[in-house]
Amino acid sequence: MDYREPKLLPGDLAIWLFIFMELLVFGLFFIVYAVMRIQNIEMFNHYQLTLNRELGAANTLLLITSSYFVVRAVHAIRVDNVKKCIYWIYAALATGAGFLILKSVEYSDTFAAGINLSTNMFYMFYLSLTLFHFLHVILGMLILFAVAIKAQRGAYSAQNHTGVETGASYWHMVDLVWIILFPLVYIIR
């Protein structure tokens, strides 16, 4: 594979392969969830009501906003505005942190109610899916943070900003997964 060809996808091709694999993992997870939900529809519907939809919706907004900030960061670097780029990445990191805080509040309520992976199949899927996504948010933030630090050192410019696009692509993936996860687990009846 020649990595130096004119690109169809922004960022490094490797991150897209990685994103594809990640989506495969989540996709498999979602399919299994959907199948199990159909087989145990009443139980799933019943326990779905115990989830905190308001916090879930707020988190969805936070991630979408955060994705927007990342888009602004990429735009900024494309016109050679390093300062703005860094500023938007930190804004995205802040909203990402907001997601983590709200999700932790939700978890602490859940765990305080004595719920764990073994409680029932619904909670098993809810907890493992969201925890797995939670870890991805942390990973995505680490990647963005690394991009921000490199940007501060002057590594990116209008000509060379593959790194910013790479980090942004991964962050959009994290957002996308939540946008599927939220309705699937919190809303659909």
Binding site: F29, V32, L117, S118, M124, S128
Partner: peptide
Amino acid sequence: PDYWQWLGSIF
């Protein structure tokens, strides 16, 4: 616990 059957299979 049972959930390992799911997590183990999927991953």
